[in-house]
């Protein structure tokens, strides 16, 4: 009897694998320190009760991509289930001296730099396996960086949906309109991932873009 039951279970698992529509995979991208993990933590906490990863004011805190599968978001009567991937901050340069300036010793700084370069490679590789991107920018910083241009270009080239997040609007220097003017062809939401400001609008936009 046990054999039959096991067979049934295996069969139903296989059936699910074959016919269940795969969740859309959404990558959270952006320069180091933009607030990607803070946002990922908020999404995952709001909808599953867990956390995603550690946050730090020192750049390149995330040095490995992390995936959280099956996050179901309910907004405005609609519901979407996504796989959320928090990626390491993208950069074109990494200098370990910057970490030493933050108070880390030389060995630790060099290790962090090495891991950070590997993290960037991982983030770039993930770009090819996504169905959409949330591009997080620090609204107190200049949005015209190479990293932003390259991520947007890759999404446009493959006609994949993109949602720009102007983060840190709780800070007085934040200028989300600069971001909107820089990339007018893509939808943008201004939020504070830290304080949760405007997060409802963000979820609605998420469902609209990736649903």
């Amino acid at each position: 009897m046990g054999v039959i039951r096991a067979f049934k279970r295996n069969f139903s698992d296989l059936f699910k694998k074959l016919f269940k529509k795969q969740n859309a995979r959404i990558g959270i991208y952006g320069p180091p320190n933009a607030g990607k993990t803070t946002l990922a933590n908020r999404i995952v906490r709001d909808w599953t009760g867990d956390a995603m990863g550690s946050v730090s004011h020192i750049a390149h805190e995330t040095r490995r991509a992390r995936r959280r599968e099956g996050v179901t978001i309910n907004t405005n009567g609609s519901s979407i289930t996504l796989d959320i991937i928090d990626t390491p901050g993208l950069a074109t340069k990494i200098d370990f001296h910057e970490f030493m300036e933050q108070g880390m010793d030389e060995a630790e700084s060099k290790r962090r730099a090495k891991e950070a370069t590997e993290g960037v490679i991982e983030a770039v590789k993930w770009l090819e396996n996504l169905d959409g991107v949330i591009l997080v920018m620090d609204a107190t910083e200049d949005p015209f960086t190479q990293v932003n241009v390259t991520v947007i270009g890759n999404m446009e080239a493959r006609s994949l949906p993109l949602l720009i997040v102007a983060n840190k609007v709780d800070l007085a220097e934040a200028s989300p309109s600069t971001i909107r003017d820089a990339f007018p062809q893509h939808p943008m939401v201004s939020i504070s991932a830290l304080e949760g400001k405007n997060i409802e609008t963000f979820y609605e936009e998420l469902a609209k873009r990736f649903g």
Binding site: V120, V124, Q146, T150, I152, G153, N154, E156, A157
Partner: peptide, 10 residues
Amino acid sequence: SPEEEAHLIE
């Protein structure tokens, strides 16, 4: 191209 830029970063 954006793909080449990504490759250059890697």
